[in-house]
Design a protein around this nucleic acid. Structure first.
Lengths: 220, 220
DNA sequence: ACCTGAACACCGTTCAAGT
DNA sequence: ACCTGAACACCGTTCAAGT
């Protein structure tokens, strides 16, 4: 009982890693809006001002958690089969962005990329270069692949249906969309997207295949 | 002088349209962070509480300005050449999202799509269906096209270089990226992306062409 | 060195009051 | 009907103080 009061274990010392890790967990659980210096401090069992000894300010926390998200993504190995490596990387990135849907909004507003972000994109570029793409073609391929991965995450996060949204919400939105005003949306929804077994996430493979096929055809 | 004090024209009456229009202008000029009920009211020459007579709350404003952004995008005509129509729509959407880069972050966090959003996507689906794509293939094409457009906008907004960022910022970031740690990023930047005349926006055409070619090949 | 209490200038929003 | 003043429960952050 040398720790002082309480029957719990000694509180781990506050570190930048613990602050950022808790911030990611809080954003995952309750959304970016619930991530405040005050709520974060409470979650860590500490007073708000203590956080400022480990991070410069809230912006530094936002930069930090975006880079933690990049760090979760599997890197492609420039050595292996470039198509398989880029597919694995894209699939991993999609999964990561699905687990942390708030990250997209931050990526777009943070100016300075973190080290995990830079390492990630350097590995993608390296894989393309080693596969034999020219520098200009690598730029094309990089922009296309990344746009697809990020954009798919945006779509998935914005979907009003899917496994993450409760069925009653889906139904109430569907009821407001009149077939007279939006015939093609209603057609797609009723005859396809709302059928049992449909998973929007499966669309990811199609688009990824299209892109990788086109890149393979552009190899010298 | 029946208007009362002042030499300016009579103040236009507050309306939902005027509130949303001013909110878009404020977000464009100073970013989403500067869009507060109080700053918006001041911009409109009114007290903060007056806004609540025209919009339910700030969330309604955010929903409203996202839909205004969708309303700016050119719709494809289901009648015409589907490839040209979808290319025009994608190019227009990219331009709109470039003018309103804050919109991406909102799209991802707003659950309920507005009428302009629905109309826009219904037109895209209609164009694909009229071109002869099956319903499942239309779902594939829609997901791929939209992911690309949104994702390209995310990339473009997150770019630390480009025509919108001051050259000195670009240079200071470049100086921090060591060729030892990120050799392929440095190669791409120095031999290609930072060359005079390079415009990241030009990458858009390449990816769009790849996608539309692949869709054309998938037509029955 | 690490943590904190009190305070400041902000938020969105409610409620009761003005015209 | 439309607008507003005062107030409430929040923010991020600074500064001076504690151990």
């Amino acid at each position: 009982m040398a720790d002082g009061a309480g029957d719990g274990p000694a509180r781990a010392p506050l570190t930048r890693e613990r602050v950022l890790g808790c911030a990611v967990a809080l954003a995952d659980a309750k959304g970016l809006g619930a991530l405040t210096m005050r709520s974060l401090a409470q979650e860590l069992g500490v007073k708000p001002m203590s956080l400022y000894h480990h991070v410069a300010n809230k912006d530094a926390i936002l930069d930090g958690i975006v880079d933690m998200v990049f760090a979760e993504m599997e890197l492609p190995s420039p050595g292996g089969d470039w198509r398989a490596e880029l597919a694995r990387r894209a699939t991993s990135a999609r999964g990561v962005l699905r687990r942390h849907p708030w990250a997209i909004a931050l990526m777009e507003s943070r100016a300075v990329p973190g080290p995990a972000n830079l390492r990630h994109h350097d590995a993608v570029l390296g894989t393309l270069r080693k596969a034999g793409f020219s520098v200009p073609m690598t730029a094309h391929a990089y922009a296309l692949l990344d746009a697809y991965v990020y954009g798919f995450a945006v779509q998935e996060a914005a979907l009003p249906f899917g496994p993450d949204s409760p069925p009653d919400v889906t139904a109430s939105i569907a009821a407001q969309i009149s077939p007279d005003d939006y015939p093609h949306l209603v057609e797609l929804a009723t005859t396809h997207a709302m059928q049992p077994g449909y998973d929007f996430g499966d669309e990811f493979k199609f688009g990824l295949g299209v892109i990788l096929d086109a890149l393979a055809a552009a190899l010298p």
